[in-house]
Amino acid sequence: MENLEFILRYVLCFLAIAVIFNCVLSLIRLRPEKKTYALLVDVTNDEQFPITCYETSIGRSKSCDIVFSNMTVSRSHAVIALRKDGFYVFDTDSKTGIHVNGEKIEKPKKIFNGDVIAFGTAVLNFYIGSEADDDMSHKKDAPIARATLTNLADDNVFRLEGDFVTIGRRKGSNIEISAPYVSREHAELTLQKNRWIIENFSSVTATTLNGEVIYSPTALENGDIIEIGDFAFRYNENR
């Protein structure tokens, strides 16, 4: 027993060190993954301001995350925060206020993809990136059993199969639309993490989703209406 205890002392120490050393090293070295949740784009010069944190302060002060030297922007003007159900913009006692899509906000306002936000005279477009969805969906989506696009003009049903579906004028596209204003490769639907994502490739004609122009890859939901020129499709899915 004496010899066993003698050895167990070392074993005990070794085991504890193995756990603590590994965990401490991991805690000290791990850095959270940097994600770009959304993008603010200055309409005047196309300058991009990525939003990488859950809360982003905007103002003239150097301590803000996004700094404008514009004199109409207060020192600490606003905060854009990612909350449970989406992005909100908060006015933090600015002098010139915040306008979302031209309307001055009185209380924190939820903002959507494509919204135009003005801080004083600084006007920016707001785009939500796909990585925001990653963090916002804790329930993994169930696999899609059946997804379809229905041409609203003729009720023609096209079933989405495989990993991607192309839409365009080019012969051989999965969904071929032979109209001159439709680009050869106009848009693409891809299946990512059990969601169909639509992305626009055309620089000629806009692709809209529920009436809003798509600038970045956007996930589709049941009942969404996709429009390309005069053509309109309804997206349906069964899980």
Partner: peptide
Amino acid sequence: VDRSTYRYGGVRQ
């Protein structure tokens, strides 16, 4: 403090 502890519900904008 680690955001990966939580994942938000699947609510889209």
